[in-house]
Amino acid sequence: MTHDEKLDAAEELMTKIARALVDHPDEVLVEAVEGDEGDDTTVLEMRVAPDDVGKVIGKQGRTVRSMRTILAAVGQGHHLRYELDVVEDEDDENDEEDTDGTTVGGSESTTAG
């Protein structure tokens, strides 16, 4: 499996899982954004319909955390480190379900690991 194939697989996996969770599956988009040279972390940016954001994040961030756990397991097999960000459009700041500080959108800058 080439590097690009791995990223494609990770994208596809997260897209399909998210599609099964939301009300508007057609609006799910996951894009892999590679880090700088020497940074082995790939960020998967997930975009969903505005009213589906709460669904992919879940109460206290549990759903997005679960997806990250799944992604980490897949990353172990790929020998790659993935991060999953749910990206919200700027005009829709709905973070009411994000009560434990889990990522919602690009405002967050901490990086674990």
Binding site: R68, L71, R81
Partner: peptide
């Protein structure tokens, strides 16, 4: 030891 993923603490 953590795999990927980000997020401040309490993970």
């Amino acid at each position: 030891s953590r795999g990927g993923g980000r997020g401040p603490g309490r993970r």
